[in-house]
Simulated scan of single mutants.
Amino acid sequence: MLFHKYSSTGNDFILLDNRDKKYDFIQSSIVENLCHRRFGVGADGVIFLEKSAKLDFSMRFFNADGSAASFCGNGARAITHFAHHLLEDKSSDRYTFEINNRVIKSEILDRNEVIVEMPAIFDLDKIKLNEFGLFLGSLYVDTGVPHAVFITDAVFYDYDLKSLYKKVNKNHKLFPHGVNVSVMEVMDDGFIALRTQERGVEDETYSCGTAAVAAAILTCRFSGFHEEINIQVKGGKLKILLDKDFKKIKLCGKAEKIFCGEIEV
């Protein structure tokens, strides 16, 4: 099986060209094996590029534990870069594709810089997070997948994100299907640091695009509105562009092909 390994600011994925449906046999157990960092290729998820009847292509995404996910912002950037180098028509750097009945628009800005128009947010503030401790601020929102974000200090040094993730996800009444958990620190005007532990990966990732959107919204709530929020994550830098109503939100950052190879499954 031919695969392509991608990184979107450290959020890494296995990309498969499934336009001819030759990889339809791949189920969750195989995805989990492929993503294993000791016995497989190693990745945060697997992305299938498939044909679409009306749009440029279709995207299917699976987390590292084999579970299907409704969306992935960094994955959307990775598949845009992948499609651009795979599809025959390279007359445009702009793409429109579908994932789980969502229509997503994306654009390659330069060689490795990709911007994605994120799906509409919903359930903003539907769940209160006060019971999980004293924080400078917190927010729940679904930015394509559900996120709980907390403002704290010293994000990159001594904060125990893993314990907070376990604590939040133990509350099955609030989060019966689990939730992604992030901690953020406001570093400067319109600049934050962010760490995320992702549901389905069950570990901290180097970057999470949908978490970056949630953190940008919380930043505007906490320190005033900014049209542009710059975010430092473990894997590099992300940029969120948004309007005051949070109706139009874009995610921008690097997406790079690391290598390609073959593996028996």
Rank of each mutant, 00 (worst) to 15 (best):
N63S: 07
D24C: 07
F61M: 13
S29L: 14
C35P: 03
R37E: 15
N74E: 14
D65W: 05
H84D: 11
S67T: 10
E88Q: 12
S58G: 11
F61S: 03
H81G: 04
F71E: 10
Y23M: 12
A78I: 02
G42D: 12
K90L: 02
F48G: 02
A69Q: 01
A78E: 02
F39H: 12
S70R: 03
A43T: 08
N74R: 01
A64E: 03
A68I: 15
H36E: 15
T80K: 01
A53H: 09
L55C: 06
G40F: 08
K54R: 07
A43L: 07
E50I: 06
F48N: 00
E88V: 09
L34Y: 10
S70W: 06
D44V: 01
H85P: 00
F82H: 03
N63K: 01
F25C: 10
L86Q: 09
V31Y: 03
L55G: 00
M59W: 09
F39N: 14
D44L: 04
S58N: 12
L55P: 03
F25N: 11
V41E: 10
H85Q: 14
S29W: 11
L86G: 02
E50L: 11
D89P: 03
N74M: 12
T80R: 01
K51M: 10
D56L: 09
R37T: 13
A78F: 07
D44K: 02
G45E: 00
H36R: 04
I30W: 06
L86Y: 10
G66D: 04
D89H: 06
F57D: 01
A53F: 08
S52Q: 09
G66R: 08
N74A: 11
I79P: 00
G42R: 07
C72L: 09
N33P: 00
F82I: 09
D44R: 00
G73F: 05
I30N: 05
K54L: 15
A78Y: 08
F39E: 12
K54I: 15
L87S: 05
A64C: 09
A83W: 00
G66Q: 08
L49G: 00
S67V: 07
L34W: 11
F48A: 01
A43Y: 09
A64L: 03
C72K: 02
G45S: 05
E88H: 08
L34I: 14
S67F: 02
H81F: 12
L34Q: 07
I47M: 10
H84C: 08
R37Q: 14
L55R: 07
S70G: 10
G40M: 06
E50G: 00
F62W: 10
G42K: 01
I26P: 00
C35E: 06
A69K: 00
R77M: 09
N33V: 05
D56I: 02
F71L: 14
D24E: 15
I79H: 01
H36M: 08
A43V: 01
I30F: 09
F62Y: 15
A68L: 13
F57L: 08
K90W: 06
E88F: 10
D56N: 12
L87T: 01
G75Q: 09
G66I: 06
